[in-house]
Amino acid sequence: MTSDFIAVLANPSAGRGRHRGLLPGVLEALGAAGCPVRPLVAGSGPEAEQACHEAVAEGAVAVVAVGGDGTVHRALQSVAGLPVGFGVVPAGTGNDFAHAVGVPHDPLKAAEQIGAALRDQRAHRFDLARTLDANGERRWFCAVLAAGFDALVNERANRMRRPSGPRRYDLAIMLELARLRARDYTVWADGTEHTFAAEIVAVGNCASYGGGMRILPDADPADGLLDLIFAAPLGRLDLTRLKPRLRHGTHVRDPRVTVLRAREIRIHAEGIVSYADGERFGPLPIEVSCVPGAIRLLR
């Protein structure tokens, strides 16, 4: 196997297929770095992760994710905490991590910058969040971990077979709103215990999730800290009113909303399955730690 190559994980269905014809141009732009470029083949999320891990073991100098936050999430599992370079070509619906770390919106321009950064041996360090669940499994995430209403919506949507596409998520929101209730949480932030009832709870390395919902508007993926948000019980009407304000991050001005910063956070509640970067992480409790400079971003 050839070492010193660029491994490319592409999700052709990202962004609902809008960038399906993008890959040849991305591969050409990455080739400007002077290294062989190797597209990875995977038929599922776990296979994608395995392909990235194998590429790193075989000597990849960089792993490049072409897609949205889900593709980024799969690829970063193989490079977090290692000296291997990481590139993001935003081709998904949300691209929240890419926006947070200054990746160009245009996919081909992003690929050109990755190639130039490799050629010039230039990289920027950014933080990642590392989790530990009740089964002792560790994973990384780059953007936001949801542990409240949005996590419940994701879990319900994943259990539904109909309808297809975005309508399934919309229906899941309506069904979860109908049975909305505040849950009792215990959270430890750098060892300080907080107990409260809430419907919204999230931990962020970056400001937004879900394609630009700025749940933690001041979160900075280069400050060595995680941001934690929770809100006093809102009820259906006030929660519905609060959600549109997430686009601008103005919800944090509500006196019922609390935002804390910490290096290590532990969240416990009954009946909640957490989601991060849109991926299922598993039931609470979960521990989240900020790992400063865990990734070498090429841009």
Results as ranks from 00 to 15, higher is better:
Leu9Gly: 00
Asn11Gln: 15
Glu28Gln: 13
Pro36Thr: 01
Leu40Gly: 01
Ala42Lys: 02
Glu54Trp: 10
Gly59Gln: 13
Gly59Ile: 13
Val61Glu: 09
Ser78Phe: 07
Gly85Val: 12
Ala91Gly: 00
Ala98Val: 00
Val101Glu: 08
Val101Asn: 04
Pro104Val: 14
Pro104Ile: 11
Asp106Gly: 03
Asp106Pro: 00
Ala111Cys: 06
Ile114Asn: 14
Asp120Asn: 14
Ala123Met: 06
Asp127Ala: 07
Leu132Asn: 01
Ala143Glu: 13
Val144Gly: 02
Leu145Asn: 04
Asp150Arg: 13
Val153Arg: 13
Val153Asp: 14
Met160Tyr: 10
Arg167Lys: 11
Tyr169Thr: 08
Arg183Ile: 05
Gly204Tyr: 14
Asn205Lys: 03
Gly211Glu: 12
Met213Ser: 12
Arg214Asp: 02
Ala219Ile: 13
Asp223Ser: 15
Leu225Lys: 11
Leu225Ser: 06
Asp227Tyr: 15
Ala232Asp: 15
Arg245Ile: 01
Arg247Met: 08
His248Val: 07
His251Trp: 12
Val259Gln: 09
Val259Lys: 08
Ala262Cys: 09
Ala269Met: 04
Ser274Ala: 15
Ala276Glu: 06
Gly282Gln: 15
Gly282Met: 14
Pro283Arg: 13
Glu287Ser: 15
Pro292Arg: 08
Gly293Cys: 12
Ile295Gly: 03
